[in-house]
């Protein structure tokens, strides 16, 4: 059974026009799926639905077989222990007034996870390549890349089954981005991940499957490698063709 199953989902804000129409895809347990699209594609709205921040007006989303009930507090409490998120901007996603210790252990406290929180935080930090010595420090003492590592540590500390990442490397410098992509790659071995991004290169490096969205509809979905090598839809083709590539060394 798929961990996430999105079935014929449609959504509109208020009485506006549909932002998502007839969206269906599966995320098998252990898979890494990229949701790719440009602005206005509906990828952020889809992420909000997956986070339970909005409810689809049409269709449904199943998590581990059960329909995601955003208004059911008990369901959402259980859901949050199993699903965590990493956002784009590590400068706004970490509370500047809290020490790293408090930030990383926050999900454990709010979800009432049993066990030694300090030890769990240490283990999570170690997994993202940071030492336990940083627990008493504040976010302002860290660079953007380090902050994103801390945000990832917070996302994995409660051992979720699914991590939702929203443009999680887009705000990082190139040299930092490569290292955080490596980090995502290593943690993605142990969990299911949905990676939302406009950056096809990052998704190509991280995800075995991808879903290409354009103006609220899925235009193409499948194995990343197959789509990259042989894109079927005109939109995917133009998207791939627009991505600037590095010059190739002249052959001698």
């Amino acid at each position: 059974m798929s961990l996430i199953s999105v079935e014929n989902v449609g959504f509109a804000y208020g009485t506006g026009r549909a932002v998502l129409e007839d969206i269906s895809f599966q995320v098998p347990r252990g898979a890494n799926v990229g949701l790719v699209g440009e602005s206005g594609s509906g990828k952020s709205t889809l992420l909000r639905l997956l986070l339970g921040l909005e409810t689809p007006q049409k269709g449904r989303i199943l998590f581990d077989g059960a329909p995601l009930a955003a208004r059911d507090k008990r369901f959402m409490r259980g859901y949050r222990t199993r699903v965590q998120a990493v956002f784009q901007d590590p400068y706004s996603s970490l509370n500047p007034a809290h020490r790293i210790q408090r930030i990383v252990t926050e999900p454990l406290r709010s979800l009432k996870v049993a066990g030694d929180h300090h030890k769990m935080a240490q283990a999570a930090l170690e997994a993202v390549g940071l030492g336990p010595d940083i627990l008493q420090r504040y976010p302002r003492q860290f660079s953007g890349g380090q902050r994103q590592r801390i945000a990832i540590a917070r996302a994995i500390v409660a051992r979720p089954e699914l991590v939702l990442a929203d443009e999680a490397v887009s705000a990082l410098d190139l040299s930092t981005r490569v290292r955080v992509v490596d980090l995502f790659q290593s943690i993605s071995q142990q969990m299911t991940m949905i990676f939302v991004s406009h950056d096809m290169g990052v998704v190509a490096a991280l995800c075995d499957h991808m879903v290409v969205l354009d103006r609220g509809r899925i235009v193409e979905a499948g194995e990343t490698r197959a789509i990259l090598r042989n894109p079927q839809h005109a939109y995917t083709q133009s998207l791939l063709a627009s991505i600037p590539r590095m010059p190739v060394p002249a052959q001698i």
Binding site: L174, S175, R177, V178, M200, G201, V202, A204, A205, T224, R225, A226, L228, R229, L240, I243, R245, M246, P247, V248, P249, A250
Partner: peptide, 28 residues
């Protein structure tokens, strides 16, 4: 063309390698 394909400095080399890695990923 020279700096982006045959960088001499190690920092430029690391940037070019990083960019080339995402390019390679795009080729599948």
């Amino acid at each position: 063309d020279t700096v982006l394909t045959r960088p001499r400095d190690s920092y430029t080399q690391s940037l070019v390698a990083a960019a080339a890695r995402f390019d390679a990923a795009l080729e599948g």
